[in-house]
Computed example of a mutant assay.
Amino acid sequence: MEEMKEITTDELKNKLDAGEKLELVDVREDDEVAKGMIPGAKHIRMGTIPENLDSFDKDKEYIMICRSGNRSGQVCHYMQEQGYKVRNMVGGMLDWSGETK
Protein backbone atom coordinates (compact mmCIF):
# COMPACT_ATOMS: atom_id res chain seq x y z
CA MET A 1 0.00 0.00 0.00
CA GLU A 2 1.20 3.49 -0.82
CA GLU A 3 2.55 5.36 2.16
CA MET A 4 0.41 8.13 3.55
CA LYS A 5 1.77 11.63 3.15
CA GLU A 6 1.79 13.86 6.18
CA ILE A 7 2.25 17.50 7.04
CA THR A 8 2.97 18.93 10.47
CA THR A 9 0.94 21.79 11.92
CA ASP A 10 4.04 24.01 11.74
CA GLU A 11 4.66 23.18 8.08
CA LEU A 12 1.04 23.95 7.30
CA LYS A 13 1.11 27.22 9.22
CA ASN A 14 4.27 28.30 7.35
CA LYS A 15 2.67 27.53 3.99
CA LEU A 16 -0.48 29.46 4.88
CA ASP A 17 1.58 32.38 6.26
CA ALA A 18 3.47 32.40 2.94
CA GLY A 19 0.14 32.79 1.15
CA GLU A 20 0.00 29.33 -0.42
CA LYS A 21 -3.44 28.28 -1.65
CA LEU A 22 -4.17 24.94 -0.04
CA GLU A 23 -7.18 22.67 -0.03
CA LEU A 24 -7.95 22.07 3.64
CA VAL A 25 -10.70 19.71 4.73
CA ASP A 26 -11.78 19.46 8.37
CA VAL A 27 -13.45 16.09 9.02
CA ARG A 28 -14.50 16.70 12.63
CA GLU A 29 -18.07 16.78 13.92
CA ASP A 30 -20.20 19.93 13.90
CA ASP A 31 -19.77 20.67 17.61
CA GLU A 32 -15.98 20.37 17.27
CA VAL A 33 -15.61 22.76 14.35
CA ALA A 34 -17.88 25.22 16.15
CA LYS A 35 -14.95 25.78 18.51
CA GLY A 36 -12.75 26.96 15.66
CA MET A 37 -11.39 25.86 12.32
CA ILE A 38 -8.29 26.81 10.39
CA PRO A 39 -9.35 29.76 8.19
CA GLY A 40 -10.15 28.59 4.67
CA ALA A 41 -10.83 24.97 5.63
CA LYS A 42 -13.92 23.25 4.28
CA HIS A 43 -15.96 21.23 6.74
CA ILE A 44 -16.92 17.75 5.53
CA ARG A 45 -17.64 15.35 8.39
CA MET A 46 -15.73 12.07 8.31
CA GLY A 47 -18.92 10.04 8.01
CA THR A 48 -20.04 11.98 4.93
CA ILE A 49 -16.76 11.78 2.98
CA PRO A 50 -17.87 8.80 0.83
CA GLU A 51 -20.98 10.59 -0.44
CA ASN A 52 -18.98 13.79 -1.03
CA LEU A 53 -16.14 12.20 -3.03
CA ASP A 54 -17.33 13.76 -6.28
CA SER A 55 -16.77 17.22 -4.81
CA PHE A 56 -13.02 16.45 -4.70
CA ASP A 57 -10.71 16.94 -7.67
CA LYS A 58 -8.17 14.16 -8.35
CA ASP A 59 -5.69 16.75 -9.67
CA LYS A 60 -5.55 18.64 -6.38
CA GLU A 61 -3.99 17.64 -3.10
CA TYR A 62 -6.14 17.88 0.01
CA ILE A 63 -4.91 18.30 3.55
CA MET A 64 -7.17 16.44 5.97
CA ILE A 65 -7.65 17.78 9.48
CA CYS A 66 -9.25 16.42 12.65
CA ARG A 67 -8.77 16.82 16.39
CA SER A 68 -5.71 14.59 16.85
CA GLY A 69 -4.80 13.34 13.37
CA ASN A 70 -6.39 9.92 13.86
CA ARG A 71 -9.71 10.28 12.01
CA SER A 72 -8.11 12.37 9.28
CA GLY A 73 -5.55 9.60 8.84
CA GLN A 74 -8.34 7.08 8.29
CA VAL A 75 -9.95 9.44 5.77
CA CYS A 76 -6.58 9.79 4.00
CA HIS A 77 -6.23 6.01 3.66
CA TYR A 78 -9.75 5.73 2.30
CA MET A 79 -9.36 8.58 -0.19
CA GLN A 80 -5.94 7.43 -1.31
CA GLU A 81 -7.48 4.04 -2.15
CA GLN A 82 -10.04 5.90 -4.27
CA GLY A 83 -7.23 7.61 -6.18
CA TYR A 84 -7.17 11.03 -4.50
CA LYS A 85 -4.09 12.98 -3.42
CA VAL A 86 -4.26 13.57 0.30
CA ARG A 87 -2.01 14.52 3.17
CA ASN A 88 -2.75 14.08 6.86
CA MET A 89 -2.17 16.96 9.28
CA VAL A 90 -0.28 15.15 12.06
CA GLY A 91 -1.24 16.08 15.61
CA GLY A 92 -4.51 17.59 14.47
CA MET A 93 -6.10 20.69 15.94
CA LEU A 94 -4.66 19.78 19.35
CA ASP A 95 -1.23 20.79 17.95
CA TRP A 96 -2.45 23.76 15.88
CA SER A 97 -1.06 27.01 17.25
CA GLY A 98 -2.15 29.22 14.37
CA GLU A 99 -5.27 31.27 13.91
CA THR A 100 -8.72 29.72 14.03
CA LYS A 101 -12.08 31.18 13.25
Rank of each mutant, 00 (worst) to 15 (best):
L24P: 14
M93F: 04
M64E: 01
E23S: 12
L16E: 11
G40L: 11
R87Y: 02
K101T: 06
S97A: 05
C66T: 07
N70Y: 15
R67P: 05
K58Q: 13
E2M: 15
N88D: 13
K101C: 02
T100N: 00
S55M: 07
P50K: 01
N70M: 15
G40T: 11
V90P: 07
I38Q: 02
V86T: 08
Y62L: 06
D10S: 13
I44Y: 09
M4W: 01
Q80I: 01
Q80F: 00
G92R: 02
S97R: 04
K85R: 13
Y78V: 04
G47R: 12
G83A: 09
I65Y: 01
S55N: 10
E29W: 09
E61Y: 06
R45I: 12
K15S: 09
R45T: 15
D17T: 13
V33R: 03
G73D: 14
S97D: 09
V33M: 03
G73N: 14
W96S: 01
L12M: 10
D57I: 00
T8I: 03
Q80N: 08
R45E: 15
N52Q: 05
D26Y: 01
K101A: 05
D95H: 07
Q80H: 02
I63E: 04
Q82S: 00
S72A: 14
E20R: 00
Y62W: 07
E81S: 08
Y78H: 06
E51K: 10
E61S: 11
V25I: 14
L53H: 00
K5R: 12
A41D: 10
G98E: 00
R45P: 15
K42L: 13
E23C: 09
L24C: 10
M1I: 14
G47E: 13
G91E: 03
S97H: 01
V25P: 12
R45S: 14
A41H: 06
R71M: 15
G69K: 12
S72G: 14
I65M: 02
K13T: 10
I44K: 04
I7P: 03
E23V: 07
K101S: 08
G40P: 13
D17F: 04
E3G: 10
L16A: 10
K42Y: 07
D57M: 10
V86S: 07
H43P: 12
